[in-house]
Simulated assay, not measured.
Amino acid sequence: GILVTRNGAIIYEQNADRQFIPASVLKIGTALAGIRILGKEYRFTTRFYVNGDRDLYIRGLADPLLVSEEVAKIVATLRSRGLSTIRNIVVDDTGCRLENGTDGATNTLNPYDAQNSCLAVNFNTINLVKGADGSVRSAEEQTPTLPLMRELAQGLPSGTHRINATATGNQSLRYVGELFGAMCKKQGVTMRGKIIPGPVPEGLKLFYEHGSSKSLDEVLTGLLKYSNNFIANQLFLAMGAKEYGWPATWDKGQRAMTAFYRNELGLSEKDIVVREGSGLSRQNRVTPKTMLAILEAFKPHAKLLPFENNCLRKSGTMTGVYGYAGYFAGERGLDSFVLMLNQPKNTRDQVLEMLGAIHGAKRKRKN
């Protein structure tokens, strides 16, 4: 399915009303919905509680960018507020109720398959180096070497590996606890106990609520530049919670997206079907004309898309699914184009070159 526009009019189309599996071009729609539902200045939050025994409770609310640098800032703030000693770290992911894993993700070490959680660090991925002698260390200066890294490195060959922390028994909460514990030790906060999964007790007073250092606008830049599936679905869950309340669920995310497309763009399920927000699911469906409507609405935010081969575009790639969606530079602004191929052979660069020629602009064929 393909189409290209010039000055607001479709100048070429093929199978524009047929539904296709979109893969990651769907992230443009997820980003647009995030802007409309949450707002560009929205900041994800994480809540911290301390009881009388000095147990530190961490309650996640789907922050996709709770990375090591952010954790270091949080620990510094906790310390500045008088937290010098803790007993246990209690990790609480009950802000989400995810009975099933991310639709389309598989149980592999591939970081693209990292499962979502209301409380997760570093996109639920671990970056480590395994030496020829079997030694293991963190591959990131900002991330301490953790016991979990040594455990997950067993069976890996020597070299640098970024792996999915949820592939073997879902170690997401353990990863959170170990990282916070290591950061506490590094900054002089003594920890005497262990890491325990569990909910924050009802009535426990909030000690600190951390607002992410990144606004939604910055989150979306990373989402679209790196095509991060984890970020897309944390956003998907947060939108569902914003519209229908916590705990976040896949169903609430689906309902929020369906309502957004219906109310904001006038689209129905014959136009678009969304099961999750990243494009991983092969149950997602969208027509090229629907993708065009999304692109037209996304134009004020077009600069969030990567600029490649003389056009702003988002790619989508899975086995048998190849696509681009974005904008050519036109005489009166941006001209939208959509390219969706559900076929064994990847010919999208040749088709994009053809669309560029139709549009009247020279395009270099992607190497």
Score class of each variant (00 low, 15 high):
residue 184 C to W: 03
residue 186 K to V: 08
residue 187 Q to R: 14
residue 190 T to I: 10
residue 190 T to G: 05
residue 190 T to C: 15
residue 191 M to Q: 15
residue 191 M to Y: 09
residue 197 P to H: 04
residue 200 V to N: 05
residue 201 P to S: 07
residue 201 P to E: 12
residue 203 G to R: 01
residue 209 E to D: 03
residue 210 H to Y: 12
residue 212 S to A: 05
residue 213 S to L: 11
residue 213 S to N: 05
residue 213 S to H: 15
residue 216 L to D: 08
residue 217 D to M: 03
residue 218 E to K: 06
residue 220 L to T: 01
residue 220 L to I: 06
residue 223 L to I: 02
residue 224 L to V: 03
residue 225 K to W: 14
residue 226 Y to T: 15
residue 227 S to C: 13
residue 231 I to K: 04
residue 233 N to T: 11
residue 234 Q to K: 12
residue 235 L to H: 03
residue 236 F to Q: 01
residue 236 F to C: 11
residue 236 F to M: 11
residue 239 M to K: 08
residue 242 K to A: 14
residue 243 E to N: 14
residue 243 E to A: 15
residue 245 G to F: 11
residue 245 G to V: 04
residue 251 D to A: 15
residue 253 G to F: 00
residue 254 Q to P: 03
residue 255 R to P: 02
residue 258 T to H: 15
residue 259 A to T: 08
residue 259 A to F: 08
residue 260 F to Q: 03
residue 262 R to K: 14
residue 263 N to T: 07
residue 263 N to L: 05
residue 263 N to C: 02
residue 264 E to A: 14
residue 268 S to T: 15
residue 268 S to A: 05
residue 268 S to C: 14
residue 270 K to V: 08
residue 270 K to A: 04
residue 271 D to N: 13
residue 273 V to E: 00
residue 276 E to I: 00
residue 278 S to M: 04
residue 280 L to G: 07
residue 280 L to A: 06
residue 283 Q to W: 13
residue 284 N to P: 07
residue 286 V to Q: 02
residue 290 T to A: 11
residue 293 A to S: 15
residue 297 A to W: 11
residue 300 P to W: 07
residue 301 H to A: 10
residue 301 H to V: 10
residue 302 A to I: 09
residue 305 L to R: 07
residue 309 N to F: 09
residue 309 N to M: 12
residue 311 C to D: 10
